[in-house]
Amino acid sequence: MKAWLAAHGRSINAAVTRLAGAPLGSTLNALVIGIALSLPIGLHLVVSNLQAASQHLTSAPQISVYMALDANRSEVAQIETKLKQTPRVANFRFVPREQALADLKNSSGLADVIDGLPQNPLPDAFVIDADDGSPAALEALRDEIGQWPRIAHVQLDAMWARRLDAGLRLGRLAAVGIALLLAVALVAVTFNTIRLQVLTRRDEIEVIKLIGATDAFIRRPFLYFGALQGFAGAIVCWLILAAAVYLANRSLGELSHVYASLFQLGFLSPLDSFALLAVPTALGWLGAWLSVSRHLSAIAQ
């Protein structure tokens, strides 16, 4: 056990020495890997944040029905009855104009402006959930209600949220696609680095083989090298993203101060951070393994 630990310790040591022995090359490799990785993971981060932000916006589409500003109570009650009689309306909620104004005052931070208004500019409204959520059915319902008396405007809510959702899903797909491509690139970069190392250390490998080293023994320092290179790239990527999120949040902070709402980009969760560090490390290891295995068989003795 002690000997086994010592052997791995030596391999790690050798890998670190090789990395440190070529600081420029190692730094460039880490930068290439880190910058490449930061593209899909940055995209993933943006998509996740937008998704989290849009989640509290209802994603089941609703129809908002706005009465004319001068509609009176009985006219509103008539519409209420008609809605009750329409089977395609699953349920609905009445929002009186006074409540709408109070809500706006509380949520928008425009209290001063609203207090200064001579009269309430908001109409009475109904918010309707349809029993059929398909866009065609919703549009038909909107058009029908729009024909009723004393209705000023009918609006399909949350259609944009759906579109945003679809867009975000596309974005997520793009992030996954780019990530897969770059994973292959990472393996290829490591493969090539290790290939050069094996070729320059050919004599050494031959000697070690002659005095009884197994392939596993010969492979080990190269595997650690590949894993370390992947890990270094992952650290670079992590730092790039952390810096980007920090800078973005600083300017978002100023922006949201003006709008009196606080929207901040969330960073990677601890689990995501762990995966960000672990996956490139594993890919570097894989690239090294493929490379050493392939080139060791060429040094047949």
Binding site: E204, E206, V207, K209, I211, G212, T214, F217
Partner: peptide, 20 residues
């Protein structure tokens, strides 16, 4: 697979030393 273990029963001395 067995070759490395067999080689360990030898001590090899080379004309060109083959040191690292």
């Amino acid at each position: 697979r067995a070759v490395p273990f067999m080689r360990r029963s030898f001590g090899l001395v080379f004309q060109d030393h083959k040191l690292l």
